[in-house]
Design a protein around this nucleic acid. Structure first.
Length: 308
DNA sequence: GATCCGTGGGG
DNA sequence: TCCCCAAGGAT
């Protein structure tokens, strides 16, 4: 095990990307924001948005002082905008329950909106140097191949995986933090889901999957449907709301602007994209009502807008 | 445990 | 072109 630790953390020391949230001076708030943004979203798309967020809201109190809709608007096109809502709620909880300071224990972090087992462990480890069993999709995949000899981890996180990850974690605090970051980075850059770059792998000679002849996955991951789904419609509606500076009347969503006899100010492009989907009226209604339910939109002066 | 929830770059 | 999938979380 010492061998794996040395090899992988050594590789990390040489190869690691220079990401701003890895800067020692970044602070726990910056780490928390990065972790929420990075949920299901690639690093390259997070970088510019993260920079703007931290410039605008350097502290949880700064974000908490603004309407939730501002968080959603500045989330831009990162996707899964509920994360923006939860991050705003987390900032509020941090101000109210933790004197404005991001909590430093796994349990307290886990209680924050939008923070699950992965994010709680990651913030405790990367922001506060704690020894935590961090398990994300990258770490799961590296463990699956390196130790279990499988092409992919199980469809859902299992207790066995958690035990394995815990057993591999170095005893020393600082070493455990480096290990977590290094394995995650290895999964992100080398031991990738598609076309892993085994030639660049620091532990290829110890890899159970390679030793087994790289057997194919034992199951086929089911892809996420997109075209024609409510998610697609919701996304198109949100694109309109982000650009709107006044409530958008419901009929603008339900009828092509040309039929309304006027060109909408500023929101013409996303509105045209929405109507290009040609969704059934029931689906549009369902999507928009879902946005209200989720708190991503509200009705004001007879129109839809981001929550104020 | 299965589903739902956005977006866009790369293979 | 199409399809895969990326530092998950909540229900």
């Amino acid at each position: 095990m010492e061998f794996l630790h040395r090899r992988i953390t050594g590789w990390f020391a040489e190869t690691a990307r220079d990401l701003p949230w890895r800067d020692p001076g970044c602070g726990a708030w910056g780490v928390l924001v990065s972790e929420i943004m990075l949920q299901q979203t690639p690093v390259v798309r997070v970088l510019p948005v993260w920079e703007e967020w931290l410039k605008r809201w350097p502290t949880p109190a700064g974000l908490a002082a603004e309407p939730a809709g501002e968080a959603v608007r500045n989330w831009g096109r990162l996707g899964y905008p509920r994360r923006a809502l939860r991050l705003h709620a987390a900032a509020t909880a941090i101000v109210e329950n933790h004197n404005g300071r991001v909590p430093d224990t796994y349990t307290e972090l886990l209680a924050l909106p939008g923070v699950g087992s992965y994010t709680a462990a990651a913030v405790a480890a990367f922001a506060y140097g704690r020894r935590e069993t961090v398990v994300d999709t990258n770490i799961r995949r590296v463990h699956a191949r390196l130790v279990a000899g499988a092409a992919l981890p199980a469809p859902a996180l299992t207790a066995a995986e958690m035990r394995l990850a815990a057993s591999l974690l170095p005893d020393d605090d600082a070493a455990s933090v480096r290990w977590n970051a290094a394995v995650m980075e290895l999964g992100a850059l080398v031991c990738t889901a598609r076309a892993p770059k085994c030639a660049d792998c620091p532990v290829k000679d110890s890899c159970a999957w390679r030793a087994a002849g790289e057997p194919p996955p034992s199951y086929v991951p089911k892809g996420q449907a997109w075209h024609g789904t409510d998610r697609q419609v919701r996304g198109a509606v949100m694109a309109v709301l982000r650009l709107a500076d006044a409530p958008v009347p419901a009929e603008m969503f339900l009828q092509p602007p040309a039929d309304l006899g006027f060109a909408p100010e500023g929101i013409g492009v996303p509105l045209a994209a929405l109507h290009r989907l040609n969704s059934a009226p029931e689906q549009l209604e369902r999507a928009m009502s879902g946005l209200l339910t989720d708190g991503l939109a509200e009705i004001h002066d007879g129109g839809y807008r981001l929550p104020a």
